[in-house]
Design a protein around this nucleic acid. Structure first.
Length: 923
RNA sequence: AGGCACGUAUGUCAAUGGUAGACAGCCACCCUUACAAGGUGGAAGUUGUGGGUUCGAGCCCCACCGUGCCUACCA
């Protein structure tokens, strides 16, 4: 048999991923037991324009680990894949394409444009799906969904209509976030606040008089008025009174319809007593605007006067509503000044207008001060443009009523977050939730199912036919002309339905009954609000139950320097490159092992190397077995542990016990999403226990030329443990385990469907573990001596061992051949008492004393130092134990088993210290 | 501004209130018949600082210093 010395992942991976998919192993129907428990997950649908990034790689790996583990544990597993239509992103991609052809989407028209997008999707859209296939993710491709599919679109309409009928969706003119870059409204969540260095402009507004020619000296007067303790924004001059307001956006003053100040300033002792009865004349516009009092204005900020632009600022909008102000929209959707602005400014871009307004105010002497000012400005997440708060008619979803059940479901534990601390963040957001603007001025997406009569009355219905029926019901002419709303819904609207729309809702399908609620959602932290919370609300509203029992939040993947990855920083790591370089299994292992309790994950080259080495270790352990166990491997039937030819020996009982403990631990760790621990347990079991000890112990029998019954039994058990270990490793490292498993005696078509090893408590063997630990410790101590004195491995040593009791004696006799070989000792003598001390090195373990003859090799200073160091180490441990034990409070208050353990340990330490002391003395 | 995390070996991270571990790196010796992507042994820590609770604190509480994230927004 030819087997390469190092594991070559690439060739292996290609073979198995296509095999798995062709065979349909990942369909839940594949589970033979129709009554088996169900385990279901929906994938967080990636953006259809996207390609796999490290975050997906982590997210998908963890889901795959869970899916494979549950599948092997006998569950009917559904892991449903799909993508979302990413309205804005996708439209942008195709628009950019058109731009290169010199065509705009408007030239093409809506229908043709949407056709183009579908074409694009068919040809270029499936990148992530292809990547997922390469990675062998165990999703059910037969159930793949896309948010723009007929079924899911149907669900979207149904939800919209029902929410509307329930009064939870409404249309109205409100202040929304307008993205001038994208020419659409966006939701609050899509606005990203960035700190910007801007200016704060202090502007004087005249009270009760017009300013037609430049005013002198106002800036100085303003300076003087604010020099002292008492600051004031009211300037009295021979030419008349002025008030001063400050703004970061001077161009909006053209739309001012009031000046506001805090009611306390208006009171008897207030600075601005009496102002309420006066009015200002808006410079450059000459509009007379009133003063209003409003709590929202802070007295201590600036002058205490605030200009109010109800059509261009969310706070001002609220004040406008409260005080019945005029809403004058001076900036349009194209971010240019409208016809409602004075003629001079019309058509100017908002920033051009700002310059002009500033210049004009300066010319009039009304610009009193311009200071540097750092503040936060909303930017459109997608286009980067500065968001314009605009008054606009849009569709909204009422959230308060929907949020309450979603809060309750987490409070009462119907849905659990892992880690638990996430639930606080979730609740906090839901408790302060605002209504959701769901309409988007795009062409790609679910068109809003609303029709308008020529008079502008909106009829919400599933289709035009139903809209006409509803016309009749409303007593209107069914033949009246109807035009459908031009807008589409936010992509997240359809994503919010994902856990049930993908399963066939609103039809009561078998899948829906079987797989809803889903068992687990694995997702990233940053879409808790965008997605998780909204799914909770929609699931509870339309399915009457939570969409998932557990939400596991995976870590945020940082770059190797610990920085957040971003395209602008240019530090994005392509997971496919990493997976290619180190192998998919190694990369998966690294990601799993790095999934600790923290919220971030910093992949490191060294961790990947270590993971690759682990894969190679597995490969070579298997290589050893495959190259040496021919006669057993010829049998294709799985092997039994019990074999009549030779009874299990200590090492066998030990590894079996260890294996069962590990199987048990892995089960419970995965059950609680402790991925890091799972990876660690398996690593140490396979490398330390299986390779370093069990496999090493087996060597004399396995490599022996003659096949005695004992040799055969050892080989059989070796293969037995290896095959089962592969099963435990499979969820994390699917490819290498499949590759090897297929070469071993096994049952079934694939390790994917092999049983995930029932742990057998009866095979836990504390005695075997204790005895084997003694052997391991003994060998380690002798190796330690060899290392200290730099004795080459080729030089055989002579060891004497003093067992503490007959049990130990028996173990040493039983294992002496192994001990000799692994410690490279030529001769072992079991003695009752140490006689020859001079010229030997000594060691003490729990249960035995060891003497290694080093005639001519020993360095007494080194030996003394070594023993004294050991004494010091044990001594300090004993000291602290004794200190504790002499404390009456400890003895009386600490748990009994802790006290007992401390006493035992202390006695043990004393024994060893005394023995070591005697050894030093005798040197 | 408010909220939430986090500060542990050189790096990245672990550790139900019971004397701190892993991986990588480092030092020494070894190509010992699966693997040098390996083997054997070793060195490395006042757990950010200062208090408190407790028989006992890396872990719980308070304050401070430092770092990160989220939410909101101040004109």
């Amino acid at each position: 048999m030819e087997i390469p010395k190092t594991y070559e992942p690439r060739e292996v991976e290609e073979r198995w991923s296509s095999y798995w998919e062709t065979k349909g192993f990942f369909l839940p129907e594949n589970t033979s037991d129709a009554k088996a428990p169900v385990f279901s997950m929906v994938i967080p649908p990636p953006n259809v324009t996207g390609y796999l990034h490290m975050g997906h790689a982590l997210n998908h790996t963890l889901q795959d680990v869970l899916a494979r583990w549950r599948r092997m544990s006998g569950d009917r597993v559904l892991w449903l894949p799909g993508t979302d239509h990413a309205g804005i992103a996708t439209q942008m991609v195709v628009e950019r394409q058109l731009q290169q052809e010199g065509v705009s989407r408007l030239d093409l028209g809506r229908e043709k444009f949407v056709e183009r997008i579908w074409e694009w999707k068919e040809h270029s859209g499936g990148t992530i799906q292809k990547q997922m296939r390469v990675l062998g993710e165990s999703v059910d491709w037969s159930r793949e969904r896309f948010t723009m599919d007929d079924g899911l679109s149907h669900a979207v309409k149904e939800v919209f209509v029902r929410l509307y009928d329930d009064g939870l969706i409404y249309r109205g003119e409100y202040m929304i976030n307008w993205s001038p870059g994208l020419q659409t409204a966006i939701s609050d969540l899509e606005v990203e606040m960035k700190t910007i260095k801007g200016k704060l402009y202090h502007i004087a507004y005249p009270i009760g008089h017009r300013v037609n020619s430049p005013v002198e000296g106002l800036a100085e007067a303003y300076q003087a008025a604010n020099d002292g303790e008492q600051k004031s924004g009211l300037l009295k001059t021979p030419g008349g009174d002025f008030i001063v307001v400050a703004t970061t956006r001077p161009e909006t003053m053209l739309g001012d319809t009031a000046i506001a100040f805090n009611p306390e300033d208006a009171g008897a002792a207030g600075r601005y007593q009496g102002m309420i009865s006066r009015s200002a004349i808006l410079p450059l516009v000459d509009r007379e605007i009133p003063f209003i009092q409003d709590e929202i204005v802070e007295k201590d900020f600036g002058t205490g006067f605030v200009k109010v632009t109800p059509a261009h600022d969310p706070n001002d909008f609220a004040m406008g509503k409260r005080h019945n102000l005029e809403f004058i929209q001076v900036i349009g959707k194209d971010a240019k000044m409208t016809d409602l602005a004075p003629e001079k400014y019309r058509g100017l871009d908002r920033y051009e207008a700002r310059k002009q307004v500033v210049a004009d105010l300066e010319a009039l002497g009304l610009m009193l001060r311009i200071e540097d000012y750092t503040h936060n400005v909303g930017h459109c997440q997608r286009s980067g443009a500065v968001v314009e708060p605009l008054l606009s008619t849009q569709w909204f979803m009422k959230m308060k009523e929907l949020a309450e059940p979603a809060l309750e479901a987490v409070r009462d534990g119907r849905t659990k977050f892992v880690p638990e601390s996430i639930s606080k963040i979730y609740s906090n957001w839901l408790e302060n939730i605002q209504d959701w603007c769901v309409s988007r001025q795009l062409w790609w997406g679910h068109r809003i199912p609303a029709w308008y009569t020529p008079e502008g009355k909106a009829i919400v219905a599933r289709d035009e036919k139903e809209a006409r029926e509803r016309l009749v019901a409303a007593g209107l002419d069914p033949n009246t002309e109807l035009t459908q709303d031009q807008d589409v819904l936010d992509t997240w609207f359809s994503s919010a339905l994902w856990p049930f729309s993908t399963l066939g809702w609103p039809d009561q399908t078998e899948d829906l009954k079987k797989f809803y609620p889903t068992s687990v959602l694995v997702t990233a932290f940053d879409i808790i609000f965008f997605w998780v919370a909204r799914m909770m609300m929609m699931g509870l509203k339309f399915m009457g139950d939570v969409p998932f029992r557990t939400v596991y939040i995976n870590a945020l993947v940082l770059d190797p320097e610990g920085q957040k990855m971003s395209k602008t920083k240019g530090n994005v790591v392509d997971p496919l490159e990493v997976f290619n370089k180190y192998g998919t299994d190694a990369a998966r292992y690294m990601l799993t092992a790095a999934s600790t309790t923290g919220l971030t994950l910093t992949p490191q080259e060294s961790k990947l190397e270590s993971a690759r080495n682990f894969a190679n270790k597995i490969w070579n352990a298997a290589r050893f077995v495959l190259l040496n166990c021919d006669e057993v491997l010829q049998s294709r039937e799985p092997l039994d542990w019990e074999t009549e030819i030779a009874p299990p020996e200590l090492a066998d009982l030990w590894i079996l016990s260890r294996f069962n403990r590990v199987a048990l631990d892995v089960h419970s760790a995965l059950g609680e999403f402790r991925f890091h621990e799972t990876a660690g347990i398996l690593y140490h079991f396979f490398w330390d226990d299986f390779c370093d000890w069990y496999l090493e112990l087996s060597k004399p029998f396995v490599t022996a030329k003659e096949s005695t019954p004992q040799n055969l039994a050892v080989k059989r058990r070796l293969i037995y443990v290896l095959e089962r270990s592969l099963r435990l490793l499979h969820p994390i490292m699917p490819f290498i385990t499949e590759e090897i498993w297929q070469k071993l005696p096994h049952k079934g078509e694939s390790i994917c469907l092999a049983e995930f090893v029932p742990h057998n408590s009866a095979q836990l063997d504390g005695r075997a573990e204790r005895e084997m630990n003694l052997v391991i410790e003994l060998i380690t101590k002798i190796r330690n001596i060899r290392g200290t004195f730099n004795i080459a491995p080729s030089v055989p040593l002579k060891a004497q061992i003093v067992p503490a009791d007959d049990g130990v004696r028996e173990v040493i006799i039983k294992m002496q051949d192994h001990i000799k070989r692994l410690a490279r000792v030529g001769e072992i003598e079991i003695i009752d008492k140490i006689v020859e001390r001079h010229g030997s090195a000594h060691s003490v373990i729990s249960g035995a004393e060891i003497v290694v003859s080093l005639e001519g090799l020993i360095d007494f200073d080194k030996e003394r130092a070594r023993l004294e160091k050991e004494v010091a180490k044990l001594g300090s441990e004993r000291e602290s134990l004794e200190k504790r034990l002499s404390n009456q409070d400890f003895v009386s208050r600490a748990a009994a088993d802790v006290v007992t353990a401390s006493r035992d340990r202390s006695a043990e330490l004393l024994d060893q210290i005394e023995k070591l002391g005697a050894m030093i003395k005798a040197l």
